[in-house]
Simulated scan of single mutants.
Amino acid sequence: MKVLFIGGTGNISVSVSKLAVARGIELTLLNRGQQGVSIDGAETIVADISQPEQVRAALGNRHFDAVVNWIAFVEPQIERDLDLFRGRCGQYIFISSASAYQKPLTTSAITESTPLANPYWQYSRDKIRCEERLMRAYRDEGFPMTIVRPSHTYDKYVPVAVGNWASYLIPQRMLDGKPIVVHGDGTSLWTLTHSEDFAKGFVGLLGHPQAIGHAFQITSDFVLTWDQIYSQIGDALGVKPNIVHIPSEVIARVDPGTGAGLLGDKMWCAVFDNSKIKQFVPDYVATIPFHLGIRRTLAWFQADERRMQVSAEDHDQMERILAAAGG
């Protein structure tokens, strides 16, 4: 099976790329070559997806059983991909987001039929519009699309809600005994998924003929409160975190960038019913609980001192939020 990944070297997609190659998929990565990540066994084509003519020249007349765009966020990018890949792929997979589901939720468990509506976060509304455009293309012209909605998926990032999760900020503050912010009262339920678990479900959808026209969420079944998440990070570090609870609305007022993701996603309980992905990919099961996965993440940071450098800006952001809330 021939598969094209647009991107393929990011937080989630590296694990998917590696598993795809391991399962014998003939994988081609199309990206700008700026991540400094190589996937053994995959072909790499250096081209900028934002330059369609450059992509056409790079791909020539090649046809793929599946094309996955890991870096499409707004509807014009979907329109571009429709023009690029009509007639040259058996399946087009769009990476949406579980944050697109309605806020507030009206059911306890999220399924693929949960309505899509997010009045708080532009990122989520853009993903919804992308999905709607692809559904029209499927209905009107038979474009072979599949939609995948990841939730909070991690690997080499520390999956937190407040603070730069791509840096060592939260672990370093825990080690230094400095306060860290947890939104709300820390008791809302949240689902974290390791990228290697996500990859198992995702690779099973590649080239799957019955997946055409469908949307799937792929998450673990491990559910934690936010206090438990931060406590397990602390346990992995051997310290007890100094948690300060601050209402999400206060955080949003002080730091609107963080607030959009809180009000539009992380302040709500998120428990997922994964029956559909398990029906289509029968061997899918998440096997990496957070207390083990976070140790892998921390070990990656600690393997190189440069990865543990934390900018003054990251600390300042946390201190501003704490100061505004009297923390």
Results as ranks from 00 to 15, higher is better:
Thr191Glu: 00
Val55Cys: 09
Trp165Gln: 03
Val239His: 12
Ala199Trp: 05
Asp314Glu: 06
His315Leu: 13
Ala161His: 12
Gly327Lys: 13
Gly7Asn: 07
Ser195Ala: 15
Tyr138Phe: 15
Arg32Cys: 11
Ala100Phe: 05
Arg139His: 15
Leu19Asn: 07
Arg62Phe: 08
Leu105Glu: 04
Gly142Glu: 05
Thr193Met: 07
Ile128Glu: 01
Glu249Trp: 03
Leu175Ala: 09
Gln279Phe: 08
Ala98Ile: 07
Lys240Ile: 14
Gly7Val: 06
Cys89Tyr: 11
Ile212Arg: 10
Phe143Cys: 10
Trp70His: 08
Pro144Ala: 10
Ser167Gln: 10
Asp40Tyr: 08
Leu27Lys: 10
Lys103Phe: 04
Pro76Asp: 12
Val67Ser: 05
Arg173Thr: 09
Gly257Ala: 01
Val162Asn: 04
Cys89Phe: 12
Trp121Tyr: 12
Val148Glu: 00
Ile110Asn: 00
Phe73Arg: 13
Pro256Leu: 02
Met145Ile: 12
Cys269Trp: 13
Leu59Gly: 06
Leu4Ser: 11
Gly186Leu: 06
Asp227Arg: 06
Lys200Trp: 02
Ala58Cys: 13
Ile39Arg: 08
Leu4Val: 14
Phe202Leu: 14
Asp235Lys: 13
Ser275Arg: 13
Ala57Asn: 10
Ile251Lys: 02
Lys278Glu: 04
Asp255Ala: 12
Ile212Pro: 02
Ser96Tyr: 09
Gly207Trp: 04
Lys178Ile: 01
Phe290Pro: 05
Asp126Gly: 07
Ala58Ser: 15
Glu131Leu: 02
Lys156Cys: 01
Ala211Pro: 02
Leu192Ser: 00
Ala100Glu: 08
Glu131Tyr: 11
Leu298Arg: 03
Ala199Ser: 05
Thr258Asn: 10
Val281Ser: 07
Glu75Val: 15
